[in-house]
Design a protein around this nucleic acid. Structure first.
Lengths: 203, 203
DNA sequence: TACACTACGTGCAACGACGCACTCAGTGCA
DNA sequence: TGCACTGAGTGCGTCGTTGCACGTAGTGTA
C-alpha cells in the first residue's frame, strides 16, 4: 500500500478513534469539531477532508463498532465452536458493544434519513435489511459453526439491536418526525419477521 | 508553533534519530538512504527535502550529538558547580558522547572539506576555531562556574575531541587525501596551542 | 573494455494536510 | 427585537510529502 494512502488511512482512523472515545465519554454531539481534531492530533480542517460532517464522523464510528462486534463474534465462534458458555459471554459482549453505540443515529443513518444518499440506503439494506436466511448462510460459511447455533446468534443479535435501539430512541425523547417514525416502525416490523418469537417490545 | 512546522521538525528529528542509530550500529556510510528513510518511517525523497545529501544528514547528526554533550555539561555544571566528583563523571560522559560520534567526518565537515560552503567554514570557525579564551568566557558566563574550572573543562573537551578524532581517523585506514591531511594537521596544531600542555599525541 | 548493477541525487507534478477568512445557523441576553 | 457569541461547514491558496522518471557515479564481472 502506498505511503500516502497509509497516512490518509491513519488520519481517518485517528478521527474515528477520537470520536469513539468522545462518544463514550460524553455521548453523541457533546463535543465540538475542535475537540475532536485536538484529540485526533490533526487540524480541524482535515476532519472535513475525510468526512462530510460531524454527523458523518459519528455514524461511521458507530458502523465501525458494529462491524467489529460482528468480527469478534466470528473470531470467538471460530475458536470455540461448541462452547455454550462462550456463547453466553459473546451475547454480553455484543450487547455491550451495541449499548456503546449511538443507536438512534445509527439506525437513522442506515435508513438514509439524515440525507438522501442512495449509497447509504443500499448500505442500510445490505446490513439490516438482508434476510435472516442470507445472513445466517454467510455467517455459517465464514465461521464454520453449526447453522442452527448461528441462527440463534443472528436472532439474538438482531433482537438485541432492535430492543436497545428502541430503548435509546424512547429515552432520547421521541425526537423523530412522523416520516422517520414510520420508517422506524417498518424496521421493527421487518426485524420482528426476521427474528420471530424472540422479539420483545418495551413499553 | 504552526502544526505544519511541528510536523516538519518531527520529520527532521526522525531522520536524525534514525541516522544516529544507524551510525552507532554500523558506522558512517554503512547504510543507504533507503534504509535511513525506512527507519525514519518517511519517504526516501523527503530526506532530500530536509538535507542536501546523506553526508549532510550524518554531519548534522554529529553536530547535534556534540551540542547535546555541551548542553549536558552546562546542565551538570549548573546543578553542582563545586562538586569535583561530578566533574570527573562529566569528563567520562563527554568522552563517551565523543566516542559515539563520527569524528573524522565531523572534523572534515567543520573544515568545509566535503564541500566549499562558506557558511560551513564560518560555522567551523565559530565552534572549533574560537579561541580558548572566548569559549571559556562564554561557558563561564552561561554556567556560573568558576572560570578556572571552566578552563580545565574546555581544555579537556578540546583535547578529548582531538585525541579521539585522531584515533578514529587512524583506525579508519588513513582515507584522507593530502590536502585533507594538511588541514587535519593544522587543526591539531591549533588545538595544541589552545589546550596547551594537556595535549597528548598518539603514535 | 563493455556491461550490468547499485545507490545517490534531481526535476516535476500530484495529492493531502493545513491555515485563514468567511458565511450561516442556533442560542443566550439585554 | 436587536445583538453578541459560539460552533459548523466552505472556499481557496500554500506548503510539505510523496512517487516516479531520469541522469550520474562507482563497482564488480565477463
Amino acid at each position: 500500500m502506498d505511503r500516502r494512502a497509509e497516512l490518509k488511512a491513519r488520519h481517518r482512523e485517528a478521527i474515528l478513534d477520537a470520536a469513539d472515545a468522545l462518544i463514550l465519554d460524553r455521548g453523541r454531539a457533546r463535543f465540538s469539531v475542535d475537540e475532536l481534531a485536538d484529540r485526533a492530533d490533526i487540524a480541524r480542517r482535515t476532519v472535513f477532508n475525510h468526512f462530510s460532517s460531524l454527523d458523518d464522523v459519528i455514524m461511521t464510528t458507530c458502523t465501525r463498532t458494529l462491524n467489529r462486534a460482528v468480527d469478534e463474534f466470528l473470531a470467538v465462534a471460530g475458536v470455540t465452536p461448541s462452547s455454550h458458555g462462550s456463547r453466553v459471554h459473546l451475547f454480553d459482549e455484543i450487547t455491550a458493544a451495541i449499548r456503546a453505540m449511538d443507536l438512534p443515529s445509527l439506525v437513522l443513518y442506515f435508513f438514509g434519513l439524515l440525507d438522501g444518499d442512495d449509497a447509504r440506503k443500499q448500505n442500510a439494506d445490505s446490513v439490516f435489511m438482508r434476510s435472516s436466511e442470507d445472513l445466517t448462510d454467510e455467517l455459517t460459511r465464514r465461521s464454520g459453526v453449526d447453522e442452527f447455533e448461528v441462527a440463534i446468534l443472528v436472532s439474538t443479535l438482531m433482537n438485541g439491536i432492535a430492543v436497545v435501539a428502541r430503548h435509546w430512541m424512547v429515552q432520547s425523547g421521541g425526537t423523530l418526525d412522523e416520516s422517520s417514525r414510520r420508517l422506524w416502525d417498518s424496521l421493527l416490523d421487518r426485524l420482528i419477521r426476521i427474528v420471530g418469537d424472540g422479539f420483545s417490545t418495551p413499553s
